[in-house]
């Protein structure tokens, strides 16, 4: 079973952070990558996010996420190269059948790369959230604002790995029965998945009945309900919280001063050194949990302090 894409507890600083802090970090990455257009700032966000993932022990999974985003990035770049005509520096000129000419601009290529960087940051922040946040803790925390919704979301999240397991098992079983899933025709391929989907659906329905009975037997619906907040705020949480807040201030300042804005068209903007310094500070602030985690591993006594 490949559990790489889901939460699994590891004993490191990032996994011991309050789920709210990790949510704050992930939201921070996501919002700023949508606001920033400067490739240096986007790169610093990607680097900080990557450092957190690597530090949390997910280099391989991050690589798999990036591999997935590379495909989408290629699509973005090709579309920009083919359809963007706002650039001024011509890279090459293609003459198609019928005499129609397409000009490929350097600026369009850079814009495509910039957008790919943005996509990678967004996907990496999603990866960090999925891999490093325990949905039980997260929803226990969020659940204070809506228990029923939180429970539905928790049970849905819990059932995902069970369904992934079902999918793998049923696909194998149907293959052994002689069902072919590798047809060239998409129509036939979809059709061959009908036994898998049918079995999964029926098993899920049966399982939902037992689960509902179990919920009932466990007193679900009684009021008042308590929430065991397993995670109390610790000094490490405060430290990361303040560093992230400082990062938000730095990012806001950079945006207000237009240091993090970048124009690709009609010609690429110059990159000033004054723009690079806040990006570097932002990188350090957002990557602080990774740095502390390194300290945790280097000096185990640090665990008692932070």
């Amino acid at each position: 079973m490949n559990w790489d894409y889901t939460y699994q507890y590891r004993d490191n600083f990032i996994y011991n952070l309050h789920p709210g802090i990790v949510l704050l970090l992930c939201t921070n990455f996501l919002i700023w990558c949508l606001i920033f257009s400067h490739p240096v700032y986007l790169a610093s966000l990607l680097a900080a996010n990557g450092m957190l993932l690597i530090s949390a022990g997910h280099l391989r999974t991050w690589y798999l996420y990036l591999k997935f985003s590379l495909f989408m990035s290629a699509v973005i770049i090709v579309i920009n190269l083919l359809f963007s005509s706002a650039g001024t520096t011509t890279l090459l000129e293609l003459t198609l059948l019928g005499g129609y000419t397409i000009k490929v601009y350097w600026e369009a290529l850079m814009y495509g790369l910039g957008m790919s960087l943005r996509l990678m940051v967004a996907i990496s922040s999603f990866a960090l959230f999925t891999l490093a946040v325990d949905s039980d803790q997260m929803l226990a925390w969020v659940g204070r604002f809506g228990t029923r919704t939180a429970l539905v979301a928790t049970s849905t999240l819990r059932i995902i790995p069970v369904m992934i397991e079902d999918y793998h098992r049923i696909t194998e079983v149907q293959k052994c029965r002689g069902v072919r899933f590798n047809h060239r025709s998409i129509r036939r391929r979809i059709k061959s998945y009908w036994p898998v989907m049918g079995s999964m659906l029926l098993s899920s329905l049966e399982r939902s009945m037992t689960m509902a009975e179990s919920l009932y037997n466990r007193g679900y619906g009684l009021k008042p309900r308590t929430n065991m907040q397993l995670h109390r705020w610790q000094s490490g949480d405060y430290l990361v919280f303040f560093s992230t807040l400082t990062g938000i201030l730095v990012a806001s300042l950079a945006q207000w001063q237009h240091w993090s804005s970048y124009s690709y068209y009609p010609v690429l903007d110059r990159v000033d050194s004054v723009e690079i310094l806040p990006a570097s500070i932002l990188l350090l602030l957002l990557a602080l949990p990774a740095i502390i985690n390194w300290g945790w591993e280097k000096w185990p006594s640090l665990r008692s302090i932070i």
């Binding site: 049970s155 819990r158 689960m211 179990s214 009684l222 929430n227």
Partner: peptide, 28 residues
Amino acid sequence: HQDADSQLIMNSVTAEIAFGMENMGLPV
């Protein structure tokens, strides 16, 4: 029940054990 998979509700072991007690409103 006989099938443990269908009666487990939460993701982690600790949260699972706590679930019923939380529903009963027991002190943390």
